[in-house]
């Protein structure tokens, strides 16, 4: 099991949620802590038992997706949500 943290001033919480949905087939994701005011969004990642993709690879792809979606949401793709 590994963990990744996203600073809430840099990552959109909804984007992180979307990334979890997208990568749910490859690993089990768990948000750690539920304090909305906390500066970090912590996510624990446990790769699927079949071991097809390493936890590190899932973490890297997952974090990239979360950043991409953060930027896309900010650039106005999501209309006044």
């Amino acid at each position: 099991m590994i963990e990744v943290r996203f600073h809430s001033s840099l990552y959109d919480a909804e984007a992180v949620t979307e990334a979890i949905d997208v990568y749910a087939d490859f690993a089990r994701f768990e948000r750690v802590g539920g304090d909305a005011a906390a500066p970090y969004i912590h996510v624990r990642i446990e790769a699927s038992a079949d071991g097809e993709i390493s936890e590190e690879d899932v973490r890297a792809e997952f974090a990239n997706y979360a950043l991409g979606r953060t930027i896309e949401r900010r650039d106005g793709r999501e209309v006044a949500s």
Binding site: I71, E72, D75, G76, R77, V79
Partner: peptide, 13 residues
């Protein structure tokens, strides 16, 4: 339409 206005998309802009 919204998704295909290039001038407003990240990177395309």
């Amino acid at each position: 339409v919204l998704a295909s206005i290039r001038e407003t998309q990240p990177d395309c802009n």
